[in-house]
């Protein structure tokens, strides 16, 4: 990789975590600084575009969908027309079922290929989940220095895309981003606490776990804990010496999944 390619890729995707980008940045503090600058620009774009959504919009949309409301309010009045319409629905669904077989085969092939690479690649085996979480934090170290509060509503609007909801967080949220965790889209947020800023990753685990390795991990600066759940793996990382267990439990108890 040369300097030009590096800059180009960082400009296009400032939160890009590709190994070759990370390795290239390590060679020169100026490269690292460039990544941080571009991430800061990206964060300010996200904030500037994050305008408030009118209150009650979802309810208005549902209320203004006439056919949806007809069926909603008078489910007993099934007319012949409705039955005919429903026949179409059934047909459409049976097409879906037919389409399911190749899809399932493709999915299982995908899992098989994934399993092959996962087990045959020594580098991956040695690269534990905790290490991955720490690398991610160092890569976006600027995320720990934010101070503007992001409301819980904004957090939940993003989290809803992954099918989840947070009842509360132990402190003021100052950073919020969708991030790529080895191909899996997850939520990356930072909240303030008595023990300094804490990072939380919520990564859906229905298709693949966050990674293997010990559930407790640390280095000279941070300590973290991975909580593996059926819907998502939650990873909390705090400054060394902070009561990580206690905060991990509080965050986990506040997560609801909308099934």
């Amino acid at each position: 990789m040369d300097d030009l390619e590096f800059r180009r890729r960082v400009i296009v995707q400032p939160h890009n975590e590709d190994q070759d980008i990370t390795d290239f940045a390590k060679q020169d503090p100026e490269h690292q600084q460039f990544i941080e600058q571009m991430q800061e620009l990206d964060d300010s774009l996200t904030q500037a575009l994050d305008i408030p959504v009118p209150e009650g919009l979802a309810d208005r949309i549902l209320a203004n969908t006439p056919e949806y409301n007809d069926e909603h309010s008078a489910p007993d009045n099934v007319t012949h027309e409705n039955v005919a319409a429903a026949d179409n629905v059934i047909n459409a669904q049976s097409r879906f079922k037919l389409g399911g077989a190749p899809l399932a085969m493709a999915a299982s092939l995908f899992v098989a290929i994934g399993a092959f690479f996962f087990t045959s690649n020594e580098h991956n085996v040695a690269y534990g989940a905790g290490e991955h979480a720490l690398t991610h934090i160092y890569h976006e170290i600027g995320s720990l220095e934010k101070s503007t509060e992001i409301s819980l509503q904004t957090v939940n609007e993003k989290f809803a895309e992954l099918g989840g909801k947070l009842d509360e967080l132990p402190g003021k949220v100052t950073y919020l981003m969708f991030c790529d965790f080895k191909g899996q889209r997850g939520l990356h947020l930072v909240f303030e606490s008595e023990h300094g800023p804490m990072t939380v990753f919520i990564v859906p685990s229905r298709e693949q776990p966050f990674g293997i390795g010990e559930n407790d991990f640390s280095d000279q600066r941070f300590a973290g804990r991975i909580d593996r759940g059926p819907d998502a793996d939650t990873i909390l990382v705090a400054s060394l010496g902070a009561p990580v267990d206690q905060y991990t439990n509080r965050v986990n108890n506040a997560i609801r999944w909308l099934h």
Binding site: V89, I90, E161
Partner: peptide, 25 residues
Amino acid sequence: VLVDMTEKKARYEKLVHVYHSELYR
């Protein structure tokens, strides 16, 4: 018909709740 409609309704509600904010923006 009722089962299908209930399923369709649930799918629709989920779509609205998950995507309305981002689509609005």
